[in-house]
Amino acid sequence: MGRHFDNELRDLKFSLLAMAGLVEEMVELARQSFTERSDAKADRVIALDHNVDELELSLDQACIDLLALRAPFASDLRLLASTLKIVPELERIGDHCTNIAKRVKFISAYPHILTAQQIEALGEATHSMVKRAMDAFVNGDAELAKAVIADDDLVDEIYVQVSKDMLQIMLQDPSAIERASHLIILVKNWERIADQATNIAEEVLFILEGVNVKHPYLQKRES
C-alpha cells in the first residue's frame, strides 16, 4: 500500500510539473508576443489555455481521490492540500496569459504609445517569478520561495509606474485612449500573474516548513 501511494504521489507531482511547464511556456510566449508584436505567438497562447484547463480538472480529481482513499498525514497531507491550491493558481496564470495575448492581437497593428521596454521589464520580472516559484517547489528550496515573495513588490512598483504613465498619455492625447486602455488591462494581467506566482511560493513554504506566511499583517496583530 505504501509503495502504491508513493507512486501515486510521484505521478501527481509529474502531472503538476507538466501543467507548470505549459503555463511557463504560455507566460514566455505572451511576453514574446508583445515584444515581437506576433499574432502567431498570441494565438499559440490562447490554444494552450485549453490544455491547462484539462490538466486542472485531472489534477483536482487526482488530489480528491488520494485524500479520500489514502488518508495521508503530515507532509503528504500538506503536499496534497497545497497542490489543490497551486493548481488553480497555475490555471489563473494561464487565463491571464490568454488575456494578454488577446490584447496583443489588438494593439500589434498600432505604433507604441509607451516605451516598450517598460512593459517588457514587467513581463520579464513576472516570468522570472513564475519560473522560480516552480523551481522552489521542484527543488524544495525555501529561500528561493522567499525571494519570489519579496520580488512581488518590485513588480508592483513597475506596474504602478507604467499605469501612471499611460494615464498621463490618455490625458494628453485623447486619440490614444483606446490603445492605452488595452495596455492598462495588459499590464494589470502581468501584475496579477506576479500575485499568483507569490501565492505559489507561499504554498511551497507551507509544504516545506508547515508555516502559513499569508497575510503577515494578521500574524503581527496576533503576536
Rank of each mutant, 00 (worst) to 15 (best):
M1V: 12
R3P: 06
F5D: 04
D6Q: 15
L9V: 11
R10L: 15
R10W: 12
L12P: 10
K13R: 15
F14A: 15
S15G: 13
L17R: 00
A18I: 02
M19V: 00
M19R: 00
M19C: 01
A20R: 00
A20D: 00
L22D: 05
L22W: 09
E24A: 01
A30W: 04
R31E: 12
Q32I: 14
S33W: 08
F34E: 05
T35L: 11
R37N: 02
R37W: 03
R37S: 04
A42Y: 08
A42G: 09
V45L: 10
L48R: 08
D49R: 06
D49A: 06
H50N: 10
N51R: 14
E54M: 14
E56T: 01
E56L: 03
S58T: 15
S58P: 02
D60V: 04
Q61T: 14
I64S: 11
A68R: 10
A68V: 13
L69M: 14
R70V: 06
A71E: 14
A71C: 12
F73N: 13
L77C: 04
L77W: 07
R78T: 09
L79R: 12
L80Y: 06
S82Q: 04
K85R: 10
I86M: 07
V87A: 01
E91W: 00
R92F: 06
R92C: 08
H96F: 06
C97T: 00
C97H: 01
C97W: 00
K102G: 12
R103I: 07
R103A: 13
R103P: 03
I107N: 02
S108T: 07
S108H: 03
A109Y: 13
H112C: 12
L114M: 14
T115C: 02
A116K: 15
A116F: 10
Q117F: 03
Q118D: 05
A121Q: 08
A125C: 10
K131T: 06
K131V: 07
R132E: 13
R132L: 07
A136V: 01
A136I: 00
F137A: 04
V138P: 07
N139S: 14
D141Q: 09
E143G: 11
L144Q: 05
K146D: 14
A147E: 15
V148H: 10
V148K: 10
A150P: 00
A150K: 09
D151W: 01
D151Y: 06
D153P: 00
D156Y: 05
D156S: 03
E157R: 01
Y159D: 02
Q161T: 09
V162G: 03
K164H: 14
M170T: 13
L171E: 15
L171I: 12
E178T: 14
E178F: 08
R179T: 13
S181G: 15
L183N: 08
I185W: 07
L186M: 09
V187Q: 01
K188S: 04
N189G: 07
N189H: 12
E191W: 00
I193D: 05
D195G: 11
A197W: 05
T198N: 14
T198Q: 11
E202V: 10
V204H: 01
L205P: 05
L208P: 03
N212R: 08
N212Y: 11
P216M: 02
L218T: 10
Q219R: 15
R221M: 11
E222H: 06
